[in-house]
Amino acid sequence: MNYTYILGGIVIASEFEIEELTPSQEKADVTLKMGKTPENLDNTVTKKVLVQINANEVLLQIPDIAKFWIINDKVVIIEVLHPDKIIDAQKYILSFILGVLSFKKGFYPLHGGGVVYNGEAYLFTAHSGAGKSTTIAGLQQRGFTALADDICNLYVEDEKIMMHPCFPRFKLWEDSLEMLNLKNVGEYKLRSDLQKFLVPVLNDFSITPVPVKRIYLLVEDREGKTFMEEVKGKDKMEILRANNYKPWMVKAFNILKEHFGLMGSISNKVEIKKFNRPLNKAKLNEMYDFLIADITNNGKS
């Protein structure tokens, strides 16, 4: 294999270069290759419109772009459907394929990203489009080290909840690029019909696993107020259940017991807060000040 990378704690050997990823010298967990893929899988346990899953294989079919066949969690075969679509195809490695491999490796893949403060991770989760990337990119500009933008792989080590950083890119919309003065830093479009970009994290991207201190659920406050709410008890489990990378995969991969065990550990050991704030550009600085105060004053915003 020509290239080896580390991505969310998973070491990947690849036939082709993936410029978004961080190089690694460790032994590969998974191999990426180009090749032919099947039309259908036998004995499927889960069938979505674009995804088929059986006991040992996962097949993702993206019309006109590429097909991805994951075999025994060890090999990913990619069939690009048009020569112009190689770069587009690679973007699915950073999302869906990473998500599958994360579940299979026993991680809890939180849908979100985070930053480091005083050696501990502060993570941000929410549904897509809720402002996770803008929050993290803005915190990085205010001196925090970025850890991940889309998927945070959490696991237990020495009774602590740890996370593996992901890959050094932010996914940002054009207005966020402008607000954060990140235009012309090497960004390129995530999709040709969207003003959304993959932006390189220019410095301070950590690749070392970090203990997790707190998870913030980002919530839009439509009345324009900014405030924190501490989450307790079973509500923590519900937030964790709803905000893993793909909740349906837990059942599809038959990992309910292991996954809920890990969620229970995270729920016991990690603080969770709802961060309610308006989605209002004019109040962005106020939002960052409030959040930074909560992080640096140990939860007292």
Binding site: K48, V49, V51, L60, P63, K91, Y92, S128, R191, D193
Partner: peptide, 16 residues
Amino acid sequence: LGIESGELPDSFVQTL
């Protein structure tokens, strides 16, 4: 779909 519709062009999603 199994993946986020935001990762696909809108024209694809409409046909699906």
